[in-house]
């Protein structure tokens, strides 16, 4: 399909490109800085293209001064565990609220909505005290446990399951499935768009989360990527912004790639056009 270059179209595209540039600018600048040496970074002129390409030096520093594999592995373990637990808890819960009739359904709905309103920052302190008493600080458990129940996940799945036809569940019951069987064999296989969308939200949020790890982890070996970056900056890099940006680039890259790969499904899940007939 070829469209003519009318004034309106050019205007729209220009506006979009400008908007995109504005959002991308920090990231572009980060890529640029990751390739600059010290003198480049602190020069008075602002240039996007490094004068001396120092990518090798900066990336070597980033990879050798901190144990980058350990950080990334921690990130994968924590985000993976959180996601799996969230889905395992939220899917049956959302199914029950969407399709089963029980007395406390309304109250439960109110509780979920309430949960959506309370940010982690409000509950962080009591949680910290509790985990401290349990002697669980500096562990994977403390990084994962507070996020294992996601009210946002319950809410997202709830909306998705409500659109699933009741007859499908009736048919499954007549075919002899238990309620758990229905969730495992009928609901989950048909909820992939929603699960994918939720996975992106969840992984992005917890991969990038600095607040909670900063509170409960002091041991480098349990540091998640952003926390590792903070340690790196405090201990090693100091004002070596080139190496810092290189490390940041390495840490954000997995998410960018994951998003690009799952982009179509992501949009599908958000618009919830998943299941028809």
């Amino acid at each position: 399909m070829t469209q003519s270059w009318t004034f309106g179209r050019v205007f729209r595209l220009t506006l979009l490109i400008l908007g995109a540039l504005m959002f991308l600018a920090p990231y572009i600048f980060m890529i640029s800085t990751a390739g600059k040496d010290q003198s480049d970074i602190f020069s008075a002129s602002l240039s996007l293209i490094p004068q001396h390409f120092a990518y090798m030096a900066n990336f070597t520093k980033a990879l050798t001064r901190v144990s980058m594999p350990n950080l990334l592995l921690n990130g994968v373990i924590v985000c993976g565990l959180i996601l799996v637990l969230q889905v395992v808890v939220a899917v049956p819960c959302a199914y029950a609220m969407a399709k089963l009739k029980f007395a406390a359904a309304r109250i439960l709905m109110a509780v979920v909505m309430l949960g959506l309103l309370v940010p982690i920052h409000a509950t962080a302190l009591p949680l910290y005290v509790a985990f401290d008493k349990l002697a669980l600080l500096n562990s994977y458990a403390v990084l994962v446990a507070p996020f294992s129940i996601s009210v946002f996940g319950i809410f997202l799945f709830l909306q998705f399951f409500r659109a699933m036809p009741d007859d499908l569940i009736h048919a499954a019951r007549l075919d002899g499935m238990s309620e758990a069987g229905i969730v495992a064999r009928v609901i989950v296989p048909n909820a992939w768009p929603a699960v994918t969308a939720f996975a992106i939200f969840s992984v992005v949020a917890h991969w990038n989360d600095l607040f909670w790890p900063l509170i409960v982890v002091t041991n480098q070996s349990y540091a998640t990527p952003p926390l590792g970056l903070l340690f790196f900056r405090a201990a090693e890099a100091g004002d070596d912004y080139g190496a810092l940006m290189a490390a940041t680039l390495i840490i954000t890259l997995p998410l960018v790639i994951a998003f690009l790969l799952a982009q179509k499904r992501f949009v599908e899940g958000i618009t919830m056009t998943g299941l028809k007939g």
Binding site: P165, D167, L168, H170, A171, A172, L174, V186, P189, N190, L275, G277
Partner: peptide
């Protein structure tokens, strides 16, 4: 049972 919407597993 045969349902009006057939209710086949998609």
């Amino acid at each position: 049972m045969v349902f009006q919407s057939y209710a086949l597993y998609p």
